[in-house]
Design a protein around this nucleic acid. Structure first.
Lengths: 228, 228
DNA sequence: CTAAATTTATGATATAAATGATAAAAATAT
DNA sequence: ATATTTTTATCATTTATATCATAAATTTAG
């Protein structure tokens, strides 16, 4: 990652949005901005936590590895999102990695300063607690799905999740470019299985595929694959 | 659940342990104590959040259902543990159920008072945030395991998790009585598969089984099933 | 203390999804 | 502009795990 001279606008990240205005001048000198290219690791699972990152521009996958070859993508982060916060808790080790999936700019805040920000800004701490509660809720829902929902349903779920997070462009495609392998890692299946299911969905005219882009064609039908 | 006249000792739960001493007199009139028998639901997934519970005595499983028949157990809670807190966040709906797996006593605190406690006790809020971070970390690790680790490994993992949480009795057995079905729901597999794996482990002299009790016989060997 | 219900035990069979293998296409690097 | 790497496309085969089926043994209820 390369450090950039230009800093962030002090307006987009979770920290700047939720702390008291009076705290912003303290944030300014304590943040630094980096650029990561596509595929570059921003922080690495099992490394010591040095601080917290905020996505300023671009898209990041948050993932956990299994062996050399396999991984599970837990979520995607875009502009304004916090990443690396799973390193809070007791052990100061990142339990996940963060990797840019397109050219990305991130803001970095050292751990000590981040913790000070939490001490000073009660509302920010409350918001962070609620944010963790939401992420836990989502994680546990995904876990239940992983245990009981077939791959076809998990892919439907993933498409809805991505749509909610990234929205769609004018032509109806999801506003994110995802490799098949990343989609597979996101739903917890292999590339081949995802490939097959995507073909099924396309044949059933449920979705439309164009390279790395995905569009929902028949929302109601896609929803039916979520149920039990 | 039956309300009991005798209240808690105001010392065991997360709230009483972490809030300021000065706040305890406020807690006293705002908590009520209930008894749940084995198998009784304490709070139900999809119900509106009325408040937060603390396990005062007994054991509770926290689980998410899938259809009529299936469920996934996310964690177990014992004396002192908080349950129902996943209902915080935005939507005030429990995303999970809590069910007593042995006769259990719980302390109940209404949501409004719980939120007031968080406003007043900064350290408690900080601890709760950290607790959420830990639970999220564990949830995501379990999710990765569900996606990539075979059942045999997940059972090994479950045994270690249960040992850490409940400890062992003098004769080496885990200090929790768990039905095969609950163990299966905890590792995200079927009863039959768990039954088979448990037989394998017993044959390999890795564990010892006695009714609903489990003991580790060969810790080193059991550990080898965790790896990739 | 007996009846009903639940939990455990166990084998046979089915199936969803992973693995393995290979080629073509596309993207990235030199 | 060409070479190298990565991503996509497929199909055949294997395997882990779920499903089905049934009986015995416990546990709980009346």
């Amino acid at each position: 990652m390369k450090k950039t001279k230009a800093g962030c606008d002090l307006k987009t990240c979770l920290l700047c949005r939720l702390c008291q205005k009076e705290w912003i001048p303290a944030v300014a000198p304590n943040r630094s901005t980096f650029k990561a290219e596509k595929g570059e690791r921003i922080f690495r699972e099992d490394d010591e936590v040095k601080g917290i990152f905020f996505v300023y521009d671009g898209t990041v996958k948050v993932h956990k590895h299994w062996g050399e070859e396999k991984e599970l993508i837990l979520r995607f982060a875009k502009k304004g999102d916090i990443i690396g916060h799973r390193g809070l808790g007791k052990e100061l080790v990142y339990p996940v990695s963060g990797t840019a999936i397109e050219p990305t700019t991130v803001c970095f805040v050292e751990l000590a300063f981040f913790q000070a920000s939490l001490k000073v800004n009660h509302d920010f701490l409350y918001a962070l607690m609620q944010f963790f509660a939401s992420e836990l809720k989502e994680s546990e829902r995904n876990m239940r799905n992983l245990a009981h929902m077939p791959v076809k349903g998990r892919i439907a779920q993933a498409i809805f999740t991505l749509e909610e997070k990234f929205g769609t462009t004018a032509d109806g495609y999801l506003n994110i470019h995802l490799s098949r392998q990343d989609l597979a890692s996101f739903v917890g299946a292999t590339y081949e299985t995802v490939f097959r299911v995507l073909n099924e969905y396309t044949g059933e005219e449920v979705i439309r595929v164009d390279g790395k882009r995905l569009a929902i064609r028949n929302r109601a039908l896609l929803k039916t694959f979520l149920g039990y």
